[in-house]
Design a protein around this nucleic acid. Structure first.
Lengths: 275, 275
DNA sequence: CGTGTTTTTGCACGATGTTGCGTAATTATG
DNA sequence: CATAATTACGCAACATCGTGCAAAAACACG
């Protein structure tokens, strides 16, 4: 398939690259390729063209702002993306194009939404304004917003209005956010209303999925959300406890692990933090 | 079968293309051809003609707005932040603490939400994810999200679900976004559903307010939103046409101007120079 | 009402633009 | 120096574009 569908104009893509460049100060060819759903060659062509226009400065692995600071470019590029970004990318691999997906509240789920490629075809349902804003305007995403009073502690609509609206939708997949995961209790949340809404969302969906950062492992939150049983998929980070993951998998839960994670040991000062 | 019955006039079709272009910032030849039921060649001819008139900029696969790059809502604000921020700050001065305010869609309204002080006590209602995300987590703001399918062209929920939910709320103030303002037609929008929702929001609210960037002045959008009559407040930029503003004020509309601490009705000598 | 003209549209066809992939060259890393 | 990653270049496949041309409808005129 050398041809293509005109999902996005060339100038638009380059404008987005420029925006990302101005925002972050750097862009990696690999990330851009995945973000826009094109090959790295295409991204490189764009970068080359933009560099010819003086809009960026070409470097090995990507590009920098023209007024180039002589920062150690290579280290920044090879720098590990945020842990949650990696989790998000792994989750995206598990999504099916064209399916109806509910995005629960949570910063991890926001990262998942961010990781969604530009032209991924999806019907997204969410009760979280931040996730809706992230998905809004994305080509290929049909966005359904669950309305209601936004709980300030959770940052999502959890009230009766939201519940009523959720009841009209039957997602294929519910992407859960969780505050804690134990072998005995399963997934749990810290806030009562939040947990109740999550349970409803799970019940309405054909299957559920949760991305678990390692700091949630073994943590016992107050309110039950989902037991460790099918239909449930879990995605763990690379440094998750091997034994625990195996035990969980034995209970009928589909367990995935973030692959290709390099050492997280040395670098803890996150340089490229995104707000 | 080359000829055909005149289903719609050429100028009519081009006007709709222009409206779509102004609304979304981009049009794809393929989509337009399917939308209007004509061949892509015809669409290309239109686009070529419009480009010759300077109404659009031809790109491979479709067309964009002439000068600016107005791709998504998010990047639109970053273009000229200063002007909209000033507009936003002026609007905030007119808000009453403790009141219930509906935030309509639009980049200007997003800027208004951004300008809201951190601890401003307010019940905010909005159908726009971007605005909801901005207001979410703010202390003092009770946030009500209007749910429903998010119209990708507008970036807000406009469907029946949203309308039903809106009907349960009676805001004190409706902050309108507008695509155009003329003395005769009043406030208007480029997209039918958007305009319809705006009218409902106005009708539900005790009074309405709109912040008008100067580039909207004299622009005639397709669909009526609000006539120039009370209860309505308008906020203009400092460089707005003096004569037009005065005429508008004479129709019973409360007119304010950026940079002027008082309303136009009493003070009109203000001349803040902003480029 | 008939006829010639103009406008509009769709189609064919060659030209141009865009993309992904294979391959070789280049660069960073140890 | 060895290895892996990144890059540039050529190529083929496909999409889009521009132009010329013919058909059909609308129009102007007698």
């Amino acid at each position: 398939m050398h041809g293509f569908g005109m999902d996005q104009f060339v100038s638009e893509r380059q404008a987005r690259i420029l925006a990302e460049l101005r925002a972050q100060g750097r862009v990696a060819a690999q990330d851009l390729a995945q973000t826009f759903g094109v090959s790295e060659d295409t991204v490189r062509r764009d970068l080359r063209e933009m560099a010819g226009r003086g809009e960026c400065e070409r470097v090995y692995g990507g590009a920098l702002l023209p007024g180039g600071k002589t920062v150690p470019l290579k280290t920044r590029i090879s720098e590990q993306p945020d842990r949650k970004v990696m989790l998000g990318q792994k989750v995206v691999e598990l999504l099916h194009e064209g399916s109806v997906v509910f995005f629960d509240a949570g910063s991890t789920n926001l990262a998942i939404a961010r990781s969604l490629p530009e032209n991924f075809r999806l019907t997204a349902v969410t009760n979280t304004p931040a996730i809706a804003a992230e998905l809004s305007g994305r080509t290929g995403v049909e966005l359904i917003m669950i309305g209601g009073r936004v709980d300030p502690a959770v940052g999502a609509a959890l009230d009766l209005t939201a519940i009523r609206q959720l009841e009209t939708i039957r997602p294929d997949l519910c992407i859960l956010g969780a505050c804690g995961l134990t072998l005995e209790e399963g997934l749990a949340a810290d806030i009562f209303e939040d947990a109740a809404f999550k349970r409803l969302a799970c019940a309405a969906s054909k299957s559920s999925l949760a991305a678990i950062t390692s700091d949630k492992l073994g943590l016992r939150a107050a309110f039950h959300v989902h037991a460790l049983q099918a239909p449930l998929s879990l995605v763990f980070e690379a440094d998750a406890d091997e034994a625990l993951v195996r035990k969980i998998a034995l209970q009928g839960v589909e367990a995935h692990r973030c692959g290709a994670a390099t050492s997280i040991n040395e670098k803890s000062a996150s340089r490229g933090s995104i707000s």
